[in-house]
Design a protein around this nucleic acid. Structure first.
Lengths: 106, 106
DNA sequence: GTAACTTGCAACCTTAAAGTTGCACAATTA
DNA sequence: TAATTGTGCAACTTTAAGGTTGCAAGTTAC
């Protein structure tokens, strides 16, 4: 089943894996040592991340090194763009400023 | 239960709600009309978004207008920052360039 | 060839999320 | 006061996610 990139990063373990792979490429076995769960559990997370192309496998003998695919992370950046405009401008709008002040008085 | 902002964004309906609220503040009833589901289902999504402060309620008589809280989306942006550095620099690193070329040849 | 190692797939269990229906409560309107 | 409207809460069902164990396939080392 094709995985949704937003659902892929919803899981804290998968976010931790992505951060690990930012430092260096790792094999499933090595990753599993970092977490308090079975190797197979980590392997399922890897499968999810691989299906939405957030990571990329590199076979080396009987070991598989997974690399972080930074390019794919830009999809989040593009999605955020629609909101970025909003959080930059909303504090220049009078009604928003007023409602913010009203909130703080409570 | 305290909600995780990443899990809140994982659901496509909730992302659609956020986009709607970017345009203008809406009441739960009006939101429900936009989607093919019951009002209570939408109300549960609103509850999730409210718990992690992605939206903010404004009572007006017996109606409640929910506003988009752009500020909270910056948390997501900050999390992305650790990867942004990566996707800007990785193509300047020789080993990455080489492995990319090797990938394309397959 | 045989044994050890690395990984992926399938079956299963448990828990939580997403949806539904029904009801209760506050605010408006007649 | 009584009826209507807008909203939230609770109970229930269904489905999927995250975890476990067991097994099979490919690779390396003896």
């Amino acid at each position: 089943m094709k995985q949704d990139i937003f659902q892929a990063i919803a899981d804290p373990t998968r976010r931790a894996i992505l951060t690990l792979l930012t430092i260096q490429a790792l094999t499933p076995n090595v990753m599993a040592e970092k977490f308090d769960m079975s190797r197979q559990a980590v392997s399922k997370h890897i499968k999810v991340l691989h299906e939405c192309e957030l990571i990329r496998p590199e076979q080396s003998g009987r070991e598989i090194y997974y690399h972080f695919n930074a390019k794919k992370m830009q999809e989040f950046d593009h999605w955020l763009a629609q909101f970025r405009q909003n959080w930059k401008t909303q504090f220049n709008q009078l009604d928003e400023v007023l409602s913010t002040i009203k909130e703080q008085k409570k």
